[in-house]
Design a protein around this nucleic acid. Structure first.
Length: 418
RNA sequence: GCCGCGUUCGUCUAGUGGCCUAGGACAUCGGGUUCUCAUCCCGAAAAUCAGGGGUUCAACUCCCCUACGCGGUACCA
């Protein structure tokens, strides 16, 4: 390792050809964790050299995702489309070197058959070998004057002094081309780490085809960033112990690229949902849940009102253990009834109403209320499940005693009226 | 086809030659706590470590072969 003394520097280099799905975002996160763990630098480079596939708004989405997740990059964002002169110059150099040739207005590179390539990949700590005869000739400068990934990537990584290239494993078979370019230009090669691609539940590469979602989609569904980050990291990486819930800070401390798995993980959201619930409870303990809800429900008048109310803290607290996503909050705190009462239930409700007003004082005390409900349940042979519905208008949800503290008896009496 | 990478419970994984008759988590099922539902707590079921050969006193761990999966094979990234 010749870079021991130089500062570690990595980059995330997406191409704005669409909104990156969770797999691409994970690559950014791993780069970020690696940089943080090694007190290095993490930068962002937009690889917008394919002018035909550019998608409007894709770059904004990339930035928004990184911003939301707190994956901070250092320095200016670099756009490859603004650096075409540099790439052209190097293409000329390759031509002069005799490594490249021109054909149909494009510059191609030929890798000699007898050349062998080998590198030590950090993921799995294994040697990967390729023979030059298996590497096809490839274009470095397209006829439209823009470079291909291979050229621009190598040049920029060198110029920006990138020490570690952490990218998806779909790049493994292109790496010999990159190695050849580094060698031809007389440059030192960075170290490589190829992350296994994430598979969908059908075990093929996660893609838009699967309806692979972006971090923004998950945000809209009520996932918190802590859970998403935690889950992405656990897909293919594990610090070695039994630890499951980890904050970004903990992950930064524990992250080692060597610990990344070599097999392709399947993306299954079941565990993400559990983690989200776990993080929601954690955020509640840390008194941060309310502000997350405020953020999430911006523009939703009804919920905004609830969050502004005097008792909002108690409501958030009571709801927290019953949420799997932030979206669940709305239903939990809504005063709308799940359904109408049946005729039988109406009868019981009337009875209960009388019973409660007879037995209880002006102000309903928790213990007394519970006792009275028990008594009613027993003497009338009505299950608590039914009582809960009559009292709250809901099949399930925030507890009666919790609601008693928040809304008081009028809330219940109102529900009992049907 | 060719080249490359992979293969431990349904899923995420622990495991780097003896501690493994394979551990944890999610999901599932059962039970407890309990005002519903959750949370929380306990327990069960779930992997002949892809299959076959080696190497070794000893292999999930090392080597080889096969099968299967994934990736690449574009003037896309």
């Amino acid at each position: 390792m010749s870079k021991e003394n130089s500062k570690i520097k990595v980059r995330f280099a997406p191409s704005p050809t669409g909104i990156p799905h969770i797999g691409n975002t994970r690559t950014a996160f791993f780069n970020f964790l690696f940089a943080k763990h090694n007190k290095g630098e993490f930068i962002l480079r937009i690889e917008d050299t394919d002018r035909k596939r550019l998608v409007e708004g894709a770059e904004d989405a990339i930035l928004e995702i990184l911003d939301w997740l707190g994956i901070k990059y250092e320095g200016e964002i670099l756009h490859q489309s603004e650096r075409t002169e540099i790439y052209k110059e190097h293409a000329r150099k390759l031509l002069n070197l005799g490594v490249a040739y021109e054909k149909e207005g494009a510059v191609w590179v030929k890798v000699p058959d007898e050349k062998d390539f080998e590198w030590e990949d950090l993921v799995g700590n294994k040697k990967i070998k390729f023979s030059g005869k298996d590497v096809e000739d490839f274009v470095v400068l397209k006829s439209d004057g823009f470079p291909t990934y291979h050229l621009a990537n190598v040049i920029d990584d060198h110029l920006m002094e990138i020490t570690h290239v952490i990218r998806g494993e779909e790049w493994i078979s292109s790496t010999p081309k990159h190695l050849f370019l580094y060698e031809s230009l007389g440059w030192e090669t960075p170290r490589f780490a190829h992350l296994p691609v994430i598979l969908g539940t059908d075990k093929t590469k996660l893609s838009k085809r699967h309806g692979a979602k972006s971090a923004l989609d998950y945000r809209a569904e009520g996932f918190v960033k802590e859970a998403l980050l935690n889950f992405m990291a656990l897909l293919g990486w594990n610090p070695g112990g039994d630890k499951e819930q980890m904050s970004v800070e903990e992950m930064e401390n524990l992250f080692k690229i060597e610990d990344v798995n070599t097999a392709n993980p399947v993306f299954d959201t079941t565990k993400l949902e559990w983690l989200n619930g776990l993080w929601i409870r954690t955020l509640n303990d840390e008194k941060k849940l309310k502000e997350r809800l405020e953020e999430f429900y911006k523009g939703n008048k009804k919920v905004e009102e609830v969050l502004k109310s005097e008792k909002s803290c108690d409501l958030v607290n009571a709801a927290s253990s019953r949420m799997r996503t932030l979206k669940d909050f709305e239903k939990l705190v809504s005063k709308e009834k799940d359904r109408e009462m049946t005729n039988d239930e109406k009868e019981i409700s009337l009875k209960l109403q009388q019973f409660l007003t007879e037995k209880l004082e002006e102000k309903w005390e928790d213990e007394k209320l519970l006792e009275t409900l028990r008594e009613f349940s027993k003497s009338n042979d009505v299950s608590f499940k039914v009582l809960f519905f009559l009292m709250t208008g809901k099949e399930k949800g925030i507890g009666i005693l919790e609601l008693n503290g928040i809304y008081g008896k009028d809330f219940f009496l109102n529900n009992l009226k049907g």
